[in-house]
Write a protein that binds this DNA or RNA. Structure first.
Lengths: 192, 192
DNA sequence: TACAAAAGTGCAATGACTACACTTTTGAAG
DNA sequence: CTTCAAAAGTGTAGTCATTGCACTTTTGTA
């Protein structure tokens, strides 16, 4: 679509260097044992520049965000005919989880986040940001008012479900059971 | 039960002074516009002492914690015969919310927390800590393995429901609808 | 009364983050 | 090709929460 000028390209490149440096160092020595200074040095930029690109130390690890939200909304909006919303969300999460599973850093990355309280909290905050968007998509789909409580609730529960699932050994089964619960509750509510 | 010696009493008193000073200042000027130094000064203690009593600035606002957890577990364990677990939790939350509603600082306090991202996040983290305890209580009650996924899920969803409910104008109705969803999903699952 | 543990203090340091004033790069207009 | 304002980058110095340390004071108890 939009051609990027050299300027934009260089900017993105700087950003990428920083993110790469951060990921390497964090994976090697842990989030708390690496300072921003060191990351900036390795990316060959000043600390000031680093913070011009990323709003916080935690954010260095979570880059792609806008895409996730539209994917989430899309999963509800464009689901196969006849499929329930909880089902569609479950499929979406399972697909997303297994989609990246081949990347060699996926495992270590997950472990890093799980083992660092700060990062868990941050990830969760970022994740929950999508609640409103998802809630609206659901409400629109079923023809409820945009701020309908049950739609907001389903959105929240679904997003949380992902977090619970990730903490489990058998993610497939966990997803099945948790979304089963939502599925039944949601269906019963829809009838009323 | 246990009589407190003068030492313990003085310690608690110091702690209370600090918490009081913090609450006053935060309510008056907002969380981010008050420094720990100022709080310590008002409570007439050193900053070092302040941090010997509280692990962080945020924790100054959230004191009573162990009680909440046992109350939560108790709500499940000692619920009236024939009442479902989601129902019991709903009742518990509604009761807890209205129980403090008469306190004059309750409203402003809630508003302070809602309006300060840091505090929202902190409160949520503290709150979710009870997930495991609640999940175990539920599992025990229905005779499932302690780490059963559906029990953990219900616990998580119920705790999150409280958060969603607090963000709503009509909390009574919101509670009704959200726990209705959990109720139906849970009931359907239990039969299987 | 004496003494060890507990409570409190002040100081200096760390580490994330910001404000500021500055230099360098670069896209685009003339 | 020159020019110039915006954008990208830099270094310095500061703020603020939080911690480690070595120290004094208080207090329960033997």
């Amino acid at each position: 679509m939009t051609e990027l000028g050299r300027r934009e390209r260089k900017k993105l490149q700087t950003r990428q260097s920083i993110a790469d440096a951060a990921l390497e160092l964090f994976l090697a020595r842990g989030f708390d044992d690496v300072g921003v200074k060191e990351i900036a040095d390795r990316a060959d930029v000043s600390v000031t520049t680093l913070f011009k690109h990323f709003p916080s130390k935690e954010s260095l690890l979570f880059d792609e965000d806008a895409e996730m939200e539209s994917a989430l909304v899309g999963a509800v909006r464009d689901r196969p005919a006849g499929q329930s919303i909880p089902q569609a969300l479950k499929d979406h999460f399972v697909r997303a989880a297994t989609g990246h599973a081949d990347h060699p850093l996926f495992g270590p990355f997950i472990r890093l986040v799980e083992d660092t309280p700060t990062l868990r909290a941050y990830q969760r905050t970022m994740w929950i940001r999508h609640e409103t968007a998802l809630a609206h998509a659901i409400a629109e789909d079923v023809g409820a008012p945009l701020d309908d409580v049950r739609c907001a609730g389903l959105a929240r529960f679904a997003l949380e479900a992902r977090d619970v699932i990730f903490g489990r050994a058998d993610r497939e089964k966990a997803a099945e059971e948790l979304f089963g619960l939502l599925e039944h509750g949601w269906a019963a509510d829809q009838k009323a």
